[in-house]
């Protein structure tokens, strides 16, 4: 099972470290990362493997969203099914 984590917000030091740190803590493997910085806006999309995670995905999603709002970032973790359903036939 895979999930997509998106991070959008003002660029600052350590965003990638914090998000991937949180993943590592819960045994979630990062498969792919794309990131871009447009002017001072930071946008990152991470594909992660969640089958071996040590907490239920819904809890992880809540945790990482909370972490995002504390850093002033908008972070969402969503199951990849929603994107596949919408964008592939």
């Amino acid at each position: 099972m895979r999930a997509v984590i998106t991070v959008i917000g003002k660029d600052m030091v350590g965003i990638l470290a914090k998000v991937s740190g949180e993943c590592a803590e819960h045994n979630i493997n990062v498969i792919e990362v794309t990131q871009s910085i447009l002017q001072d806006m930071f946008a990152m999309i991470m594909m992660v493997e969640i089958s071996k995670a040590d907490i239920p995905f819904t809890q992880f999603a809540e945790k990482i969203e909370k972490m995002g709002s504390e850093m002033g970032l908008s972070i969402h973790a969503m199951h990849e099914d929603i994107f596949n359903a919408m964008h592939t036939i």
Partner: peptide, 16 residues
Amino acid sequence: MLNAKDILETITMIQD
């Protein structure tokens, strides 16, 4: 395969 544009489109639809 998913691309960044599709992912951001879905997020924008839901968020905004």
